[in-house]
Design a protein around this nucleic acid. Structure first.
Lengths: 275, 275
DNA sequence: CTTGACTCTGACACCGTGTCAGGGCCGACC
DNA sequence: GGTCGGCCCTGACACGGTGTCAGAGTCAAG
């Protein structure tokens, strides 16, 4: 018979934990002195304690450990738990490894520049949206080519939406696709999110943008004429963190007024996949 | 200006978390309606939110994130945090990978045997102990050779300890070393833990056993004459989990009475290292 | 009997997040 | 102007595994 302290030392557990295991019925002392309340353990209980620790070490919760030790799950149930746990662990190792890469990149950046810049890339899932849109064609991706095309589209879009009594349900949004057959030209979509069903609705097209499982995003502050550095930072991030751009980029106009475009806030979104 | 719900959607955060960040001063809403208490956020605050999320994603605590965002740590401090975090992550990935291997081994075992057996190997650190000991020489590691040598040593040891007024402070303990020059013969140490200083104390030697950073241990139930299967299980575990035995094995007699040796409880300890 | 080491219970803390209850506010529609 | 659905407010509790503390009781050696 060991006192709780001795038993704890033998089993390499804290006294606190032995009391906890007693409280939740996971490992009861062999006897408890009814007068003093002292717990006394027998050497043979080390077997159960050992099994308990082994199971816990694998990452099972105490509730699961109890189920296994008390034989309320059979081999099949245990197998299931372990498979689940293995999946969790694999996921976690992958995530941690990715984090390690990001941290290492950050450290390099600090060492080379002495400070952190553009720490604002966020990896997100994009939900599907419905968008009422107008389109135009620009000569290239350059902001100087895009702006004159996209600017006039918005007032016109708003006007046409009013005609069909549709109201925007969210921010304005733009995206770009290459034009087939012309490697330089860009099809510019100017839209706003709406609740209406997709399909042609009067003078505007309502299209459904699909969900994107992973998109690298960055928030650009200031006029869209100066978006290039922000876009470059986003592209650099994608490359440094081992992703590859996939699909067309979107811009989300979170804040914009024609009077003060330099105060605009725009989120740039680029779908990415693991190469 | 966005309501908390809209802002949460934009930033891919839960409303709950935005309120929490407000409460701990990590991200305050741009304005709060004093009458209703409604929080309102500005688009430009997405910048801070984005930085916050990026830092958090690396595994910094919210307190650390706040320190970084509020510029109360410089690049050097941030570097330190990230290095620390990187070390933690590396450790965790290593540990998780090891766990994965163990789980995979267990799954194989379940699939081949239909159930879990001998799930009682525990990896421990052994603290240094002081031991009063007597020694003898056995012909081989076989229990049939060891027993006749070790059995008589204990009564003699107890007798001699009484002579010098030393009392055991813990369980009995045995360990074995090969005899130099004779590849088969084994030097058997029979000891008990004591508090006394090391060095010769009258008729018994008191030696200090060093700490062991990692030892694979298993608890054997029953007579030591039947220790072989348990020892085999321990050896199998060591091999399956990618360790290598290093140093001499110890036995810790947690429970023993001469009248009922079949009720004995003994912990077998084998120091191990990563190969 | 004294003393020091041990044990008892019960409580609080950590951390990041979800969830619930009970009540107030906003805006769209009639 | 009234009503209603959806949003927002605060405050609280929960999770899980463990540490730590306070205040009181117990054990065993001298």
């Amino acid at each position: 018979m060991f006192t709780i302290g001795d038993f704890a030392r033998l089993g390499r557990v804290s006294v606190r934990m032995l009391r906890h295991y007693d409280a939740i019925g996971l490992l009861r002392p062999a006897t408890v002195d009814p007068r003093s309340g002292y717990r006394y353990y027998r050497a043979e209980q080390l077997r159960r304690l050992g099994q308990l620790l082994a199971l816990k070490e694998l990452g099972l919760t105490l509730a699961q450990v109890r189920a296994v030790l008390d034989d309320t799950v059979d081999a099949v149930g245990l197998r299931g738990m372990l498979m689940l746990r293995r999946a969790q662990l694999q996921e976690q190792v992958a995530a941690d490894t990715a984090r390690l890469a990001v941290i290492t990149a950050r450290l390099r950046m600090i060492d080379s520049e002495g400070r952190m810049t553009s720490e604002n890339v966020v990896l997100k899932e994009l939900s599907p949206v419905r968008v009422a849109e107008l389109t135009g064609i620009a000569r290239s991706y350059a902001p100087t080519d895009i702006s004159p095309v996209i600017q006039p589209l918005y007032p016109e879009l708003i006007r046409r939406l009013e005609v069909v009594q549709l109201r925007p349900s969210g921010p304005g949004l733009a995206w770009y696709e290459p034009v087939e057959g012309d490697d330089d030209a860009i099809l510019v979509h100017a839209g706003v999110t709406v609740d209406a069903d997709p399909g042609p609705t009067g003078d505007v097209a309502v299209v459904a943008l699909p969900a994107v499982p992973a998109a690298a995003t960055i928030v650009h502050h200031g006029s869209m004429d100066e978006v290039e550095p922000t876009l470059l930072a986003l592209a650099a991030w994608i490359e440094e963190n081992g992703w590859r751009a996939a699909g067309f980029a979107r811009e989300l106009y979170l804040d914009y007024s024609p009077e003060a475009p330099e105060k605009g806030v725009t989120e740039l979104q680029i779908p990415v996949v693991r190469p």
